[in-house]
Simulated assay, not measured.
Amino acid sequence: MKFIRNVENFVFGAECLGCGQASGYLDPWLCPDCAEKLNRESKAVVSPGPDAYSLFPMRPLTRRLVHALKYKGISGVATYLVRHSSVVGGTMGAELALLPRPLHFVPVPLHRARFRERGYNQAEMIASALAVVTGGKVCKWLRRRSFVVSQTKLSKEERERNVAFAFEARLPRNLPGRGTVVVVDDVFTTGATTAACLDAFGRDFPLPLKVCTLLYDEPASVVADYAEDCQMEWDV
């Protein structure tokens, strides 16, 4: 079976990260159909909160792309998603343009053990891509103090306890006197991780604090409405 798959990849091209089908027309990660679907998703309005931004909703396609970023070692997906989001010439770009400049993108840090396992911090990859397209800077102003177990199957309360006091600020002596600090992570679910990061800066931190993630894992009710809308469009 593996031999057949290798032959198919040689003849038809590598597999699309979205649908898993072999294609000779990848861009380089998605086939034309999945690329068009991602373009539609980039126009969706997603709002985790008044001080938080997410570039895409959590959908099967975007979930698979972030999975490839985190667990398949394809770090280039971070730049790909940022460049195909509304940060570039879209609504998110307009939102970020309203923030006091410069933008200081602070990635959520990984514990050393997790970093050794993956070889890179996906939040740092995302922050770097955001800095390039907005003219901002990547600032490693947070340090992880404790190892946190995977949050995937934890409840909201468990997530909050899991990351409480897990981070501490590591600020430069000459802290910039202007601009906006944007804490960057891959997925916003309950907001527990990014909230713990914001808390690490303290109440008297002099710069505005925001959050930006690639995906927003919306409440189940929103996802159900989206599925129903898609079914209605299909029926029509």
Rank of each mutant, 00 (worst) to 15 (best):
Q21H: 13
C34Q: 01
A220M: 06
C212G: 02
S85T: 05
T79G: 15
A192V: 05
V211N: 00
A200W: 01
V182N: 02
V236N: 11
E36V: 06
V236T: 10
V106R: 03
V149P: 05
R170I: 13
Q122C: 05
Q151I: 13
T62P: 12
V133A: 04
P32Q: 04
T180S: 15
V11A: 10
F105E: 00
V108H: 00
R114T: 11
K137P: 10
A127V: 13
Y71N: 12
V138F: 13
W141I: 00
V108R: 00
Q231D: 14
K43Y: 09
E95H: 14
N174C: 06
P219V: 06
P206H: 10
M232H: 07
D235V: 07
A196F: 10
R145E: 11
D225C: 03
V7Y: 07
M58L: 13
Y120L: 02
P50N: 04
R5A: 14
A220F: 08
K137Q: 14
R170C: 12
V187A: 04
L154I: 09
Y226F: 13
A227L: 08
K140E: 10
R114I: 08
F115K: 12
L55W: 03
C197R: 02
W29C: 07
G135Y: 12
F56S: 01
I74L: 15
P176A: 02
G89H: 08
E168P: 04
T189D: 01
V46E: 00
Y226P: 02
L55Q: 01
G93D: 06
S221L: 11
A192P: 12
K70W: 11
L175T: 10
A97R: 09
L103S: 05
S54D: 00
P102W: 09
V45N: 10
P176S: 07
D229H: 11
Q231K: 07
R178T: 14
S75V: 05
H67C: 10
R144Q: 10
T189A: 09
A113C: 04
V138I: 13
C19P: 05
P57C: 05
A14W: 06
T213L: 06
F201D: 00
F3R: 13
L110F: 05
D229C: 06
Q151K: 07
Y120K: 01
G119Q: 10
I74M: 13
N9Q: 14
R159V: 03
E157M: 12
